[in-house]
Design a protein around this nucleic acid. Structure first.
Lengths: 342, 342
DNA sequence: TTGTACGCGTTATCAT
DNA sequence: ATGATAACGCGTACAA
């Protein structure tokens, strides 16, 4: 069906090796020969078989990006970043959704090992540290997470710092009763920690944390209702991310609470929708495209490292700063009122 | 480094062939032998090398989905659909962004041929019909588009029909001066055609079509301004998609036009944001996840077809219906007013 | 039930 | 400058 080196060689009356040389622009070849070979290549529509190449070289020039769900608004831009530097470097990208299921994630990693991908970017993993270390022996791995074994290559968003600054912003506006809707992973959350750290710095307590299972609009709405039922005096709610915040906005509307007059709401990530809802959401911007770039560059470094000359696996994880985006839902414009009101 | 069949064979004191049989659960093997082999496999952490397998079988069990941009809100759910049935069938998915650049698209298709992917789902292609037919000789191909050569396997959204129904809805509400913001590809657009068909059916003219280069919020906003400058009497604007419609909403706000009181606006696709903007957008729902499913199933059929028994390449393209979602921006609630007003 | 040997399409090592 | 040939890791006739 599709032409091989041998076909070209036979047709051009040269050896396989010669064709191979022409294809790879190797060494000197008689111009006359090269011309003839190139001619046959074009005529037969020959294309090198990457499979065979990879079998010999041990490299596939393909990587995988493993994420919970591409439909989560956080990931498309991230993946775009990954793919853009990957292709620029001649790599192709497998996309794998785990559906937030650890078992599925495990199966995927296993299958990718057989697939001989050169490296993996693993996001929002649900695996245990031990499993991650195990996976790292199998793959060249870059993790995108805030809770990772220190020995693994990691790129992280400054979640705790960012969320602390976000909460601090509300505190500056005079809020004292601040709640938080958290998404806990094995009981942990860097964002919740940031929330708590900010309150603690101001000597404010207790914490009002309400968990969601998944970080969706609907779960956010339900959680906000639970939280407000429990602590009606809240003047502000910090949300795990923008989707949850939008759900919270809906819950406030359900209860006839005006935002930001009666209560402030803030999100995290700054997804497209955040700027479009009414009232527009105050949030922390996370440059997800850049995060994808950074992760992939990190991975590429690992890929270029040899065994004798291992990459300077900077023990320090690469960190991506966040940026406060003040819109309407925090009531920043009303800061004077709030300040004088207390 | 990583164990091969030979390693396992040597270690277990059997032949390569025997190990191969165990791995593939082939034929009968003495339980004793199988046990011993499985034991060694586990101990050595052997994993079959898919590369080598593929080289022999001529199948990689990987497909590619080629799209303009994963950050376009249309695609994440589509890709999710693709990946879900692909994995279920044991296939992995390469994700390739063309950035809406025909040259890039061409390069990608070329590279994928070398990659030996088993099939490709090609969305929103910018290639010419001739190029597509050419590409189809190189790949098993499924197209997602409204403008495709009839001989190629295609899954299409009922864009013209859907847009016609959408426009009809506005006509039913009494609108007479209806504009359209179009995204033209080589001068064509199924959605614009639907708009025109609806008007024509009611004997209404002329058409008021304003083009955008890319279907984004910003371009939509600018186009809406141009359109309203040109035809201030418009009582409704139909937009190529929801992003453009949101831009149009912003343009209306810029001009102090109340929606839907002063002017109606409708979109297409029903992306998540459509329900969240204020006022909520009336639009046509396109089940993008299902579209992904359908495309992949179509491709799987092709993959299972042999040369002697070619797939019944249904000359008829598979079609996905759309569904009208009435929200606020069309002013359906005010239909009585509008009807009596004329 | 198990083993031998060849082929998949390339690259790379040695000759010539 | 060019050619024979051995890997790469696996599946599979064909033998035993």
């Amino acid at each position: 069906m599709t032409a091989t080196l041998r076909d070209v060689a036979r047709e051009a009356g040269v050896s396989i090796r010669t064709v191979s040389r022409v294809v790879n622009n190797r060494e000197e070849i008689a111009d006359e020969t090269r011309r003839r070979v190139l001619d046959v290549i074009a005529r037969l529509g020959y294309r090198p078989n990457t499979l065979a190449r990879s079998l010999v070289s041990g490299k596939t020039r393909s990587i995988a990006v493993v994420i919970p769900q591409i439909t989560d608004p956080f990931y498309p831009e991230f993946v775009q970043g990954v793919e853009s530097v990957a292709r620029q470097q001649g790599y192709h990208v497998f996309l794998c959704n785990t559906d937030e299921d650890p078992a599925q994630e495990h199966k995927i990693l296993d299958a990718l090992a057989s697939k001989q991908v050169d490296g993996i970017i693993l996001c929002g993993t649900r695996l245990t540290p031990e499993q991650l270390i195990q996976a790292n022996t199998l793959h060249k791995l870059v993790l995108i997470t805030s809770r990772a074994p220190a020995t693994l290559a990691t790129v992280k968003v400054q979640e705790e710092l960012g969320f602390c600054a976000l909460t601090e912003h509300l505190l500056q506006l005079g809020h004292q009763q601040i709640g938080h809707i958290a998404r806990l992973l094995y009981g942990n959350s860097a964002r919740r920690d940031g929330y708590q750290r900010a309150l603690r710095a101001h000597g404010i307590g207790p914490f009002h944390v309400e968990p969601v299972g998944r970080a969706t609009i609907d779960e956010g709405r339900a959680a906000a209702h639970r939280l407000l039922d429990r602590v009606p005096a809240l003047t502000a709610i910090t949300c795990y991310n923008d989707l949850v915040a939008i759900g919270t906005l809906q819950a406030c509307a359900d209860r006839g609470l005006a935002v930001p007059t009666d209560i402030a709401v803030v999100g995290f990530d700054d997804i497209l929708i955040a700027a479009l809802v009414e009232p527009a959401l105050t949030t922390m911007h996370v440059d997800r495209f850049k995060l994808g770039l950074m992760a992939t560059e990190q991975l590429m470094q690992q890929l270029q490292s040899t065994d004798e000359m291992p990459a300077p696996t900077s023990c320090q994880p690469v960190e991506l700063p966040t940026r406060l985006v003040v819109r309407t839902t925090c009531g920043a414009k009303c800061s004077a009122n709030v300040a004088t009101a207390r």
